[in-house]
């Protein structure tokens, strides 16, 4: 399983990487990206991974902006410290998210869910729909 981590805080990214490796050594972190622009560039030029962990507040912009530029075909798990508005949207749309600091147990649950999920059942974000959801007051 290939994983991409989008996170602008270096220590946080390294911790997430370590936690993923501890949970499932077979998971391969193919990229750690810090900004919206880097993420867009990477996602356009590389084969998309099986799963993306995505921080919301990135150094240059909100990570939601990525969806406007790249069609993402794989499931995305959002990570955030607190962003009440976003988490409400996530909950309403049954999107997966992790609250930071990330708990190992919760991360494990998410990873197991995606490892065991048949390909067809993975929830793929519709960029346009998602953008609408997030913009809504």
């Amino acid at each position: 399983m290939q994983v991409v981590i989008i996170e602008d805080e270096e220590f946080a990214a390294r911790r997430l990487e370590r936690m993923i490796n501890e949970i499932d050594p077979d998971m391969q972190i193919v990229a750690k990206l810090e900004s919206v622009s880097d993420s867009i560039k990477w996602l356009k030029n590389n084969q998309q991974p099986d799963l993306i962990f995505m921080d919301i507040h990135l150094e240059d912009n909100s990570s939601f902006a990525i969806f406007n530029s790249v069609k993402i075909h794989c499931p995305v798990v959002f990570t955030t410290a607190t962003d009440e508005k976003s988490t409400i949207v996530f909950k309403q749309n049954k999107l997966d998210y992790l609250l930071k600091p990330i708990c190992a147990d919760e991360l494990k649950k998410i990873i197991e869910k995606y490892c065991n999920l048949p390909f067809g059942e993975r929830k793929i974000l519709d960029a346009a729909l998602f953008a609408d959801l997030v913009k809504k007051p």
């Binding site: 220590f11 946080a12 911790r15 410290a81 609250l99 930071k100 990330i102």
Partner: peptide
């Protein structure tokens, strides 16, 4: 929470 997130990340690494 942001600070805690940094802190938890540091605990092992640094």
């Amino acid at each position: 929470f942001n600070s805690l997130n940094v802190l938890i990340s540091l605990i092992r690494l640094e």
